[in-house]
Write a protein that binds this DNA or RNA. Structure first.
Length: 302
DNA sequence: ATCCTATCCTGTAGGC
DNA sequence: TGCCTACAGGATAGGA
């Protein structure tokens, strides 16, 4: 995959696109990797507000201080920031979380910043999250597998690309609907509401199909489109809606590629039938009734 | 096993 | 122009 220019080291204030699903978190990971590896935390300021309804652990600031960032990893939508001394920051962007990196010293007035890390050279890394659905926790690195949020996660589809055979095996006998199957982080980690609709549209599988009724050839398409959609979205630095943009940071451009998401009533890009919106699990699903029949039909080519 | 609802939150868009 | 309300959704707990 071609190295995107924005993944190089950044010289201006940096933040990253949302809405955060796997491709957006991977974009964050790559951008931070280019900026913060090897930096040592000198000062820590916390907002004191709860994230995801949970207060910061006592001693969090002290535990972060004097630690050096060694590695940035990702599993699904979780970003893992390894520190010297054997601890790892487990972070999740929730709905509105953002990481911001400022290469130089200075002060900036900004609302909803919950964690401010200042490095020895004056550069700064901030975690901002207006809606506070996000997560920022420090966990012993050797206990990550016991972490309640991480322990149950399914395979990451980038590290461990799904196959039709594998998905079909996991879906055998299940009545859960296709869209909710893809959304369930215990089955596959990283697919959110936008990409679930996109994957099923490209795979031509109706979102309300019971997972156990989906045929092997259809699972093969779902697996292939999962890999393709995620790879293309990462290439384009994710999906960004118009509200989000910063000075030196391009927004993700995958939004231009969306075929059904948020396009209710607009023509399907494949067959021009109007895109439909339904609600599954209290959230919107978008699909094309013509391209994604509710009943499996015989097709010329799969 | 699965479904449903509620919870946590604020910014945005729509109606009037 | 401003006020009000509905809506957006990731993870998770609890009840059916």
């Amino acid at each position: 995959m071609a190295q995107h220019p924005s993944w190089r080291r950044i010289d201006g204030p940096v933040s990253v696109p949302t809405m955060p699903e796997l491709p957006e978190v991977e974009t964050v990971r790559r951008m931070l990797e280019a900026s913060v590896i090897g930096r040592t935390i000198e000062r820590v300021r916390l907002s004191g507000l709860r994230l995801r309804g949970v207060p910061h652990a006592p001693g969090l600031a002290a535990a972060l201080r004097a630690r050096t960032i060694t590695t940035l990893r990702r599993h699904g939508k979780y970003l893992l920031i390894d520190l010297s001394g054997g601890h790892t920051i487990v972070s999740h962007l929730g709905m509105s979380g953002r990481w911001l990196f400022f290469p130089g010293p200075g002060s900036k007035r900004l609302d909803h910043v919950h964690v401010r890390l200042e490095f020895a050279d004056g550069s700064r890394l901030w975690f901002q999250d207006p809606r506070r659905f996000g997560m920022f926790r420090l966990v012993p690195s050797d206990k990550l597998h016991e972490d309640p949020s991480l322990a149950l996660l399914g395979p990451d589809p980038i590290a461990d690309p799904p196959t039709g055979r594998g998905l079909a095996a996991r879906a055998r006998g299940l009545s859960v609907r296709a869209k909710l199957f893809l959304l369930d982080q215990r089955r596959i980690a990283g697919i959110g509401n936008i990409y679930a609709s996109e994957i099923l549209h490209r795979a031509r599988v109706h979102p309300a199909r019971p997972a156990g009724s989906i045929r092997p050839a259809e699972w093969t398409r779902i697996a292939r489109e999962t890999r393709a959609v995620l790879a293309e979205a990462i290439e384009r630095m994710g999906t960004t809606f118009s509200t989000y943009r910063t000075l030196s940071n391009e927004p993700g451009s995958y939004g231009d590629q969306l075929r059904v998401y948020d396009r209710a009533g607009e023509p399907c890009r494949r067959c021009a039938a109007p895109v439909r919106r339904i609600v599954q699990g209290q959230r919107s699903t978008f699909y094309c009734a013509a391209c994604q029949p509710l009943r499996a039909t015989r097709r010329r080519r799969d």
